[in-house]
Simulated scan of single mutants.
Amino acid sequence: MQPGLYVALSGQMALMRRLETLAHNVANVTTAGFRAEEIKFDELLSQRTDSPTAFVSAGSTYISRRAGEVVRTENPFDVAVTGDGWLAFNGSDGPVYTRDGRMTMTPEGELRTLNGHPVLDVGGAPIQLNPNGGAPTIASDGTITQGQQQMGALGLFTIPQHAKLTRFENSGVRPDVPAEPALDFSRTGVLQGFIEHANVNPVSEISRLIQIQRSFDSIGNAMAKSEDTLQSAIRTLGETS
């Protein structure tokens, strides 16, 4: 048995998985509110050989929570979330949380995401505006007014740091533990007329893609040399036997 070949193979498999996550991140670099997917690798120690052999694990993915760049749009239906907060909308199977604050109002006055999902208030109810009330004014705490009339408030939530996030569509996430209503509006809020871009640095991600390709090729060359060495040893033993 050549443990070095298996170690190299485990490294290539890990690199392929990382390559997939990077490609997905780059493909969504222009998606508002998109959270990059990262991957964590651990060392696996095998005792099946004469000496312990370290292998690379397949890796576990997680969604990065770092903030993206905030840019001005001047659209009154756009908001960027500040701090660690999240907006909420009603998905196909319960609430979904997002940093994509691009919204629209239906002819009936329903506040929805660009994909048509109802935007929720802090109580989990869809937000209803006056279809004839004009563009809303949205305060930093999410309070929505049209003219002088308060129409409701955007639900702002925080997700515990230990929660595992799963992706919904491109910019939505679902935590495995309940999100909590935001209480400290000095640290969490919204900016009207702004949106948050994806938290993906395209230059950094492309650099990583190049590095992974080089590492993959390097491992492949090492495996080929190891195989040549093995074949040479077999031929030498055969000639001397």
Rank of each mutant, 00 (worst) to 15 (best):
V26Q: 04
A67F: 11
D50W: 10
T166Y: 14
G11C: 08
S10E: 03
L5I: 09
A179L: 08
P3F: 08
E74G: 03
T73A: 09
G68L: 10
T166M: 15
T137A: 07
N25S: 09
R235S: 15
D100L: 02
L165Y: 14
T53I: 11
D100K: 02
L237Q: 07
L237D: 02
I144V: 06
D217Q: 14
A23M: 14
R208A: 06
R167S: 14
A14Y: 05
E69M: 09
L22M: 08
A139I: 02
A27I: 03
A182K: 09
G123T: 00
H24L: 12
L87I: 00
M16D: 04
I219C: 05
I212T: 13
G155R: 00
R48E: 08
R18N: 12
I212W: 14
E110A: 13
S186M: 14
R66I: 15
I206S: 10
V173W: 02
E169K: 12
E196T: 09
R102D: 02
Q192W: 05
N130A: 05
K225T: 14
N170F: 10
V56Y: 05
L87W: 00
F216M: 04
I159P: 04
E205S: 12
R214W: 09
T21E: 08
L114W: 04
G152C: 04
